[in-house]
């Protein structure tokens, strides 16, 4: 049994965690809505930095960011959505199909492939960047969308997540389908994939987050605003004088919104999947 005082301690700790997580977000949103740069500089250093009076909120920063000719925000946003969209959508099919084969089909070298996939999870992007850059350069993909999409469709951690999920699905279900005349491809498409909702949500969120925030790789393979993602543009925007905090935060808010919406849309499944993998 939890006593009253224990409950109070737990609640206080939870509140501290929540505030710590929310504080930067509050600062970002509040600052983005303050039109007067001097006011921002004045508020910084006090609690007023985390708050804006709704009646005084201004959208000028947003208007300025959207109107910039040299830094076309909407173009960057489109690039990011386009790149991440392709990676996630194609990735779901490719990674789940790979996981299905690894967990359900019997073939020579299956365990070796699985071991390699798991081992690949721990290799950081930084270690692969240079060889990958040479390859991309060789096929003439510099400054293209495909250079940002194709290398990241196959995602070892997603394969592993799908693998874990499929391994837990009762084998009888596949066998029942095989007896009814289904092929392995039909079992994957009509049975396994439709049952993977929670994993699809998890993979979609994790992969989106990873590539939405990608910085190093896009920096290496892109030059102009035509294909550059919004993450890179933010850094560039920050480096372009004169930087104003209000604009910068408006940029940040608009950059964070899509991923926030995605998370809210999938969070029920995401939590379900994370909890399931934690207790089983």
């Amino acid at each position: 049994m939890i006593t009253r005082s224990e409950r109070l301690v737990i609640l206080t700790l939870a509140l501290v965690v929540v505030l710590t997580v929310l504080a930067p977000l509050a600062l970002m949103v509040a600052t983005s809505l303050k039109g007067d740069e001097n006011r921002i500089l004045l508020d910084i250093g006090s609690l007023a930095a985390f708050w804006v009076n709704p009646l005084e909120a201004e959208w000028t920063n947003y208007a300025q960011v959207l109107a910039s000719q040299t830094q076309p925000f909407l173009r960057f946003l489109f690039n990011s959505v386009f790149v991440v969209g392709w990676i996630v959508v194609v990735g779901i099919f490719v990674n789940s199909a790979a996981a299905f084969a690894l967990s359900r089909l019997r073939f020579r070298g299956r365990n070796l492939v699985l071991a390699v996939v798991v081992a690949l999870i721990i290799i950081p992007m930084e270690a692969l960047a240079i060889p990958l850059l040479l390859m991309v350069n060789r096929v003439g993909w510099l400054d293209t969308y495909q250079a940002q999409i194709v290398p990241f469709i196959a995602h070892p951690f997603s394969i592993f997540l799908f693998y874990q999920f499929f391994a837990k699905l009762p084998k009888d279900i596949d066998e029942a389908a095989y007896v009814e005349g289904a092929t392995p491809a039909q079992v994957y498409w009509k049975i396994a994939l439709p049952l993977s909702g929670p994993v699809i949500a998890t993979v979609a969120i994790l992969q989106s987050l990873e590539y939405w925030n990608a910085y190093l790789w896009p920096l290496m393979v892109t030059r102009g605003p035509e294909v550059r993602p919004v993450s890179l543009a933010l850094a560039q925007f920050f480096g372009t004088p004169p930087p104003t905090w209000g604009d910068l935060m408006a940029f940040s808010v608009m950059m964070s919104l899509p991923i926030l919406v995605l998370y809210l849309a999938f969070q029920r499944w995401f939590i379900q999947s994370v909890v399931a993998s934690a207790v089983k």
Binding site: D172, I173, A176, A177, Y178, V179, A182, P194, L195
Partner: peptide, 19 residues
């Protein structure tokens, strides 16, 4: 293959498609 044998099987776990 199972489907070419003209059989149908009922499993202990029922093996229904949950979705």
């Amino acid at each position: 293959a199972p489907k070419e044998r003209g059989i149908a099987m009922v499993f202990q776990s029922y093996a229904l498609y949950p979705h």
